[in-house]
Amino acid sequence: MDATDLHSLAGHLREYDLQVVALEPEMRLHATNPLHGLLTKEIVAANGHYVTSFKYEIGEQGHEKECAQRIAQLLAAPTSVHQGAAATPRSWTPVTDAAGWCDWHEGPSRTAVLIDVVGEDSGPAAPRYACAPCREQRGLRPDDGGQS
């Protein structure tokens, strides 16, 4: 992979609203889903192919657009398919309210709900929100306002 291929792949990944860091000296890319920071892939070139750090083959060099689509799918980036056309990127909906943030994975979320309020006795109250995956993984339950 040369720097041109690296920048081409990075550009196609950004079309899917993925966060991309290109490490030119090492000829590596790090792509991350901005809605969940744990969804990330490191991409390197090996023998004319793009592969992940786990040696999963993404595709051939020279086919950066198709490789970017595969990487976007691995990272659960939203795509839409137009009838009779190839998949085209669809933008993320920006999160602007506090309930759109998960305090457990420390990232934006469309499924975050209030879990608890901390600091009421020791200072200003701070609500804590958790997304559906974090609630399931950690057994968290939404705050019922003391009703249970």
Rank of each mutant, 00 (worst) to 15 (best):
Q137W: 06
W92T: 09
Q137M: 05
Q137C: 04
T88F: 01
D97G: 02
T96R: 15
Q83Y: 14
A98I: 10
G145N: 08
R135C: 00
A98W: 07
P142T: 11
A86F: 05
R128W: 02
Y129W: 07
L114M: 01
C131L: 02
P108Q: 00
S109I: 06
G119P: 10
V118M: 11
T111H: 00
L114S: 08
E136P: 01
Q137K: 12
P108F: 00
G100K: 09
C131Q: 12
G119Q: 12
G107L: 02
P108E: 01
A112K: 00
G84V: 03
H105V: 03
V95Q: 15
G119K: 11
S122K: 15
E136R: 11
G146C: 09
P142V: 07
D103F: 00
A99E: 13
A99R: 15
G84R: 02
A85Y: 12
V95T: 14
D143C: 02
W92Q: 11
R138T: 00
P127Q: 06
S122C: 13
D103C: 02
P133W: 00
V113K: 13
P127S: 04
A86R: 14
C134A: 03
A126G: 11
W101M: 13
A132T: 11
T93Q: 11
D103P: 02
A99M: 11
A126Q: 15
E106L: 09
H82K: 15
A130Q: 07
T111N: 03
S109A: 15
D97R: 13
R90M: 09
R128C: 06
A132N: 08
V113I: 10
Y129N: 05
S91W: 04
D121P: 04
R135V: 09
